[in-house]
């Protein structure tokens, strides 16, 4: 009998562990948000985080968007040709970029670049007792390390998404005009005639949520890093994997909320 029940018990243990894990992350997120509104605020660390997360992520987000916009134009042209809808390339590239691909790919690239570096940096600080040193120097680690990074990412990623959207549309335009024989003026007109403000705004809101997720995962796993190089490595991997999965999950939920009929 116990042999039959052991898989059920194992499943139960896994579920309890998962729920406990979700609970710990939720408590960490709640504490972070609470600290955002309580002084002291570390403006220098916020500025540094804004530079690291926002400005220095521009090249990778821009390149990703450029190639994605170009590939999207080729795909839609080829697919659209099956039912004589090649003319829809500009508007579908624009809508696809600003609603979906800009925020999701931008979020994933920032997750790869930023969640990993935050987790590795904070994890290393933890194993070298720098976090303990902060406490003994009367500085709350969450206020000094987590809040500046989470706020900076929440503000910077929508800006990155906006830039990525523009570059993605530019990528589609370049391919459309140079490879698919679209008239330049007609391509631009088609792009903007069908694009609505809500398409752009919804993508930027997604970007803010994804930025929050990325920095939160980096900080959470860094703060809870195990000992030694292996512990920091594991924290870094977990931060990127968790941030990526949460971005996809949040993207689906937000799309349901924003666009479901």
């Amino acid at each position: 009998m116990s042999g039959l029940l052991s898989p059920v018990a194992a499943l139960g243990r896994s579920m309890l562990a998962l729920l406990a894990y979700v609970g710990r992350v939720a408590i960490f997120a709640g504490a972070t948000v609470a600290h955002v509104f309580r002084p002291p605020w570390y403006w220098r660390e916020f500025g540094w985080a804004l530079m690291q997360i926002g400005w220095l992520s521009l090249p990778v987000v821009g390149m990703t968007a450029l190639f994605t916009g170009g590939a999207l134009a080729l795909q839609i042209y080829d697919g659209g040709a099956r039912f004589q809808a090649e003319f829809a390339v500009p508007s579908i590239v624009a809508i696809g970029m600003v609603r979906e691909l800009g925020p999701v790919l931008g979020g994933l690239m920032v997750a790869a670049r930023v969640a990993s570096s935050i987790a590795a940096e904070i994890g290393t600080m933890k194993v070298t007792e720098q976090i303990d040193a902060l406490v003994t120097l009367s500085t709350h680690p969450m206020k000094y390390l987590t809040v500046p990074r989470v706020v900076a990412a929440t503000l910077a990623v929508p800006v990155l998404v906006a830039v990525g959207d523009s570059i993605g549309i530019l990528g589609g335009y370049l391919v459309g005009v140079t490879r698919l024989d679209f008239n330049a003026a007609a391509y631009l007109k088609n792009t903007f005639d069908f694009l609505e403000l809500w398409d752009v705004t919804s993508g930027l809101i997604k970007g803010a949520v994804f930025g929050f997720i990325v920095a939160l995962c980096g900080c959470y796993f860094g703060m809870n890093s195990g000992r030694g190089a292996q512990g920091v490595g594991r924290a870094t991997k977990s931060a990127v994997v968790t941030a990526s999965v949460l971005i996809f999950a949040a993207n689906y939920i937000l799309t349901e909320v924003f666009f479901a009929a």
Binding site: M125, T128, E129, Q130, D132, A133, T136
Partner: peptide
């Protein structure tokens, strides 16, 4: 308090 950590724990 002041504290000297084993590895220095410098930032």
């Amino acid at each position: 308090f002041g504290m000297l950590f084993q590895g220095g724990a410098l930032f």
